[in-house]
């Protein structure tokens, strides 16, 4: 398939994008999302240009107000003279592959303030998203956006992984809905650098905070979380309350990372995760290919077939 690039090569698009042409930025993101050769070319071209932006991941259950919070946060960043961009991830329908991406509605303040917002569908989960999001972040980073905020629904493992791969991972919970417990179940407690209790004007906000504290205590005791204890910030995003505190906490976390080895460690981990995703993708394709070319033969068990094909792929003979 020939992607519509208006006749421009990825390199030409990148040059235009770095000059601030929004449509070129958007088109690069499209190509990254589609994967394949053009995406690889863009990954190559942006690899050395990126690395400046602070990457912030924001996640929370549906209805936690994370879009409104992201909007308020990035609007505040614009007011402070910074140039944020948002990648808002929503799930694709597993049945049809289609998606309804509704984050811009709640981000209207940010879009009006000039924040670059890109909605992205998970497109069948797995490898696609795990590759597309870092690729998109690199494009935005290379185009001078800083910070780059990834906003995603924290329900699936893939989405959690995406946020975990950010420099600063923010988990949003709300009072009264057992969000803190859900966050624990989803494994978000381990990845969070910052917690936000949003809708803090509601009854139960202090309970939510206490639940979080309690669970963090338990996590620390179990030693499952060998990092800095996450800060808890209270916000009421719809009124803009607490958003300055959140921004200060995000900046403080960044400062800690930059001041020590944290940033390098995280970025190394992020690159490793991306390489792993690429590897999974490549091996998956090779496995499919091998299966077509040399599938099961009579008399062979499934384990034997798998080992034979693995050997064929890796060029090492039978791995059994």
């Amino acid at each position: 398939m020939q992607p519509a690039t208006e006749g421009r090569t990825p390199a030409e698009l990148l040059a235009a994008a770095r000059d601030g042409e929004r449509r070129a930025i958007a088109r690069l993101l499209t190509l990254v999302e589609r994967g394949g050769g053009a995406a690889d070319a863009i990954a190559g071209a942006t690899h050395r240009l990126a690395g400046t932006a602070h990457v912030v991941g924001i996640t929370g259950a549906p209805g936690s107000g994370k879009s409104t919070l992201t909007s308020a946060l990035t609007t505040l960043l614009v007011a402070g003279g910074r140039r944020p961009a948002v990648v808002a991830v929503d799930p694709s329908s597993p049945l049809t592959g289609g998606a309804i991406l509704g984050d811009r509605v709640r981000m209207e303040a940010a879009t009006v303030a000039g924040v670059f917002v890109r909605s992205m569908a998970t497109r069948g989960h797995g490898g696609g998203l795990a590759l597309a999001v870092p690729g998109a972040v690199r494009v935005l980073d290379a185009c001078g956006f800083d910070p780059v905020v990834i906003e995603t629904v924290g329900v699936g493992q893939v989405e959690v992984d995406v946020v975990a791969a950010a420099d600063t991972a923010v988990v949003v919970v709300t009072p009264g809905w057992g969000d803190a417990v859900q966050a624990n179940k989803a494994g978000l407690l381990e990845v969070a650098d910052l917690f936000v209790v949003n809708k803090a004007d509601r009854p139960g906000a202090s309970d939510a905070r206490r639940d979080l504290d309690l669970m963090l205590d338990l996590t620390e005791v179990s030693g499952a979380c060998p990092k800095r204890r996450p800060v808890i910030v209270e916000t009421t995003a719809t009124k803009g309350e607490g958003v300055e505190d959140l921004l200060a906490a995000i900046d403080a976390h960044h400062a800690v990372l930059v001041g020590g080895t944290g940033l390098e460690v995280r970025r190394a981990r992020r690159l490793a995760a991306e390489v792993r995703a690429r590897l999974d993708h490549l091996l998956g394709e090779a496995a499919g290919q091998a299966l077509v070319e040399a599938g099961p033969v009579a008399g062979e068990t499934t384990v034997e077939t798998a080992r034979r094909l693995a050997g064929r792929i890796l060029g090492t003979g039978d791995t059994g």
Binding site: I100, V105, R106, T238
Partner: peptide, 10 residues
């Protein structure tokens, strides 16, 4: 009073 942005449910 402020203004209102709806919770979008499509």
């Amino acid at each position: 009073f402020g203004t209102y942005v709806e919770t979008t449910v499509v």
